[in-house]
Write a protein that binds this DNA or RNA. Structure first.
Lengths: 229, 229
DNA sequence: TATCGAAATAATATCGATATTTTTGACGGA
DNA sequence: TCCGTCAAAAATATCGATATTATTTCGATA
């Protein structure tokens, strides 16, 4: 989410902004599958606007690594691969741990309030409302890091989070997380964070990511072998 | 450098490509100072093209964090600050070390040849040709990492490198690096890399960055206090 | 039947014009 | 003098049309 958030929410967002959010959503949830050619004309008719804001939105998405730009040959959604997924997981662990440590060192009560609140909201949201839940889930995780005073780092974490969420959507409901209690995992992470127990918080967070990652990886490789047959 | 490189170099680059490279260069070398408003009309007349490729190039530069986009209020070059500089240095150390370790683990003779060659070219280039030297200097450092199989990580390193180079240009010739022998530092790093001595290579690389960082930081804070008076 | 190349088609990239929005600056009231 | 307001000016954002470039189709040739 590179785009500057609106200060004044009453104001109508620009066409570019609308296009950016709409296309981004479509890619994340898988409505636009990986590797798909993104034709300006088609997007124009879907989003009902001129070509300029579409192109600009796509260019913004290039920075999020959700879209690839081929000079003179238009745009396509980023490809996926097990290697890419594994790299994202690795990088997330590296960067989020760094950010979490820094965040906890700088943490104050404002941060704590924000964290507790976002946790509460996430827990209350029914998992059935997938997109809404994912939004709150992301907010919770980003709030963990939010007391870090490293904007560039946070931007990377944010970006990696979105890249990862895409894989989660693509795996779809096939994933039922068997015996895990995701709610408890989150609560434990939050408690460790609120206690400012840096080591425990980091350990729990990374476990959380790695366990989910292992699930997804398994699912993903099954998918791929099924597909290539 | 997000933009897809041309496969066929005989081909004329698109206007967007030209604009991207031109504006990027102007920002990096400081011709467009930090915080400067980037007026489409002005850039249009400088680069002699329509508004669309300019806007698209600026949007691409947003992803490089060299340009900020303010919805409905145009573009401006990214601000600089001591905090930003320090963060870039920290992140570079973290990410480049990770990338270097991976690169050395995966290294082969192709990588080694590329590295040696880029080192040679850099050493031969007179420091007086600043822009050309910086290009070769970047190539050398990126080649150190280039055997890493983590494209996202490499992209981050590349981006951070450019953000850092900008500070070097801004500090300008004021910097004469006193008693350091930069050439030797590079050669030592290369030798450790060629020896696949991961620990030494990492240590030397980070020292190299941190020493330069300390120089710049000193220069930079002097600049700022002078300016704010 | 496979391959090459040229024409036809489709898509992208770019321009110039226009609609919106933000910024500026002058004016008058407190 | 200090604000707030409103119109004028400037700049951005967007559109529709066109030029450019890539892709496909289709036949001719080997």
């Amino acid at each position: 989410m590179n785009i500057q958030a609106h200060i004044d929410p009453s104001q109508e967002p620009s066409a570019t902004q609308r296009a950016y959010l709409a296309i981004r959503r479509m890619i994340l949830v898988g409505e636009l599958p990986p590797g798909e050619k993104l034709k300006i004309e088609k997007l124009r008719s879907i989003l009902d606007m001129g070509g300029s804001p579409i192109r600009e939105a796509l260019t913004l998405l290039v920075s999020d690594q959700l879209v690839e730009r081929l000079d003179q040959r238009g745009f396509r959604t980023a490809e996926i691969s097990p290697e890419n997924f594994a790299e994202i997981l690795r990088l997330r662990c590296l960067l989020e741990e760094t950010a979490l440590r820094e965040s906890l060192r700088n943490s104050d009560t404002v941060w704590e309030d924000r964290l507790v609140l976002s946790h509460h909201r996430m827990m209350r949201e029914p998992r059935s409302n997938v997109e809404r839940f994912e939004e709150l889930h992301k907010a919770f995780h980003m709030n963990l890091l939010s007391a870090s005073k490293s904007p560039v780092l946070l931007r990377f974490c944010n970006q990696l989070y979105d890249l990862n969420i895409r894989y989660r959507y693509l795996a779809g409901k096939a994933l039922n997380y068997s015996k895990r209690d995701i709610g408890k995992e989150h609560t434990d992470i939050m408690n460790a964070a609120v206690d400012r127990d840096i080591e425990t918080a980091c350990r729990l967070l990374l476990d959380h990511y790695r366990t989910t990652g292992a699930f997804l990886e398994k699912h993903f490789s099954a998918e791929l072998t099924a597909r290539t047959v």
